[in-house]
Computed example of a mutant assay.
Amino acid sequence: MFARFRRKRLNPVLRDLLQETHLSVNDFIYPLFARSGTGIKDEVASMPGVYQMSIDEIVKECEDLKKLGIYAIILFGIPDVKDSVGSDALCEHGIIAQTVRAVKAAHPDMFVVTDLCFCEYTDHGHCGVLDPVLETVDNDITLGNLAKQAVVHAKAGADMIAPSGMMDGMITAIREGLDSAGFENLPVMSYSTKFASAYYGPFRDVAESSPSFGDRRSYQMNPANRNEAILESIEDEKEGADILMVKPALAYLDIVRDIKNNTSLPLAVYNVSGEYSMLKMAAKAGVIDYDKVMMETLLGFKRAGADIIITYHAKEAALLLQK
């Protein structure tokens, strides 16, 4: 006697009844990139379908997203002026604060997450204030600035803060800053396990955030390290993070499952720019069925343990799910 697994696969209704993992439009957070000006919607060559937008265009985009059932966005800012400390990120009139206020005024039902980091705002492209001797980010000085940045976003109306700089102690500093300013109920979704990955290349085009020297391996994680990846997320849970995250997603599904098995917190993944662009270019070359591969990839994130997927595919996936 041998097992006949096909008994449960022959009938499509039974297949659907027994499907273990499901995708929903409620799983998605859609990234948006804000810059100053009006009427700006500039497509990024390395990321077809992804745009730098002025605030008025982002407000319009939110209307389109809601028609697809997408009610969660994550905002990244492209300032007009960059300096050594990322001053625009600390200013209540900075690009992200302005964008949050505009989106919440026009769409109070839109859930607005703000990326909390300095790489887009510094003239050197690193994720905080530099230590001139070590030529890397000064961890502890940057913690204070992250707390200030979080409060600026909170006062503008952000619904959730998502720190991405991989500074040691960043969740403690941000949580204390938010709580002392009266935002104790504002959740923090930490980029708790973020690797120093080559998959980020196209993002740096759209966010204009490439480092002017070196790389980010002195603070982002070594892609070879599994145990350290788990420890990073567990430490952020101890410090008070409400949601954890693994970034990138596709090449790190083992890490997603490892962390899921070691925490009770919700877990997000960031389906990053390189992952997105590879599918776009493969579709353009005619070597894949884009829709099927995209949906299979997103389903794989859920199966590995993700509760939330930050993805540039969100609009396309939502359309397919509606059908």
Rank of each mutant, 00 (worst) to 15 (best):
K194G: 00
F195Q: 11
A196V: 11
A196N: 12
S197Y: 01
S197H: 03
A198M: 08
Y199M: 09
Y200T: 06
Y200H: 08
G201W: 11
P202V: 05
P202R: 05
F203G: 13
F203A: 13
R204N: 06
D205A: 06
D205V: 13
D205W: 01
V206Y: 03
V206L: 10
E208P: 02
S210T: 14
S210R: 15
S210Y: 14
S212A: 15
R216F: 05
R216C: 13
R217G: 13
S218G: 04
S218Y: 12
Y219A: 04
Q220E: 07
M221L: 15
M221A: 12
M221E: 01
P223G: 09
N225P: 07
R226E: 00
N227K: 14
N227L: 09
E228A: 14
I230K: 10
L231M: 00
L231Y: 05
E232H: 15
E232Y: 12
S233N: 09
K238A: 11
K238D: 02
E239D: 15
E239G: 04
E239L: 10
G240V: 01
D242Y: 12
K247D: 08
A249L: 09
A249W: 02
L250W: 04
Y252A: 09
L253I: 15
D254E: 04
I255E: 04
R257F: 12
R257G: 02
D258N: 04
I259G: 05
I259Y: 09
I259D: 00
K260P: 02
K260S: 05
K260V: 00
N262H: 10
T263L: 09
T263Y: 05
S264H: 15
L267A: 04
L267Q: 04
L267T: 05
L267G: 09
A268R: 07
A268C: 11
V269N: 05
V269H: 00
V272A: 01
G274Q: 04
G274H: 03
G274L: 07
G274K: 08
E275T: 05
E275A: 06
Y276N: 00
S277E: 14
L279F: 13
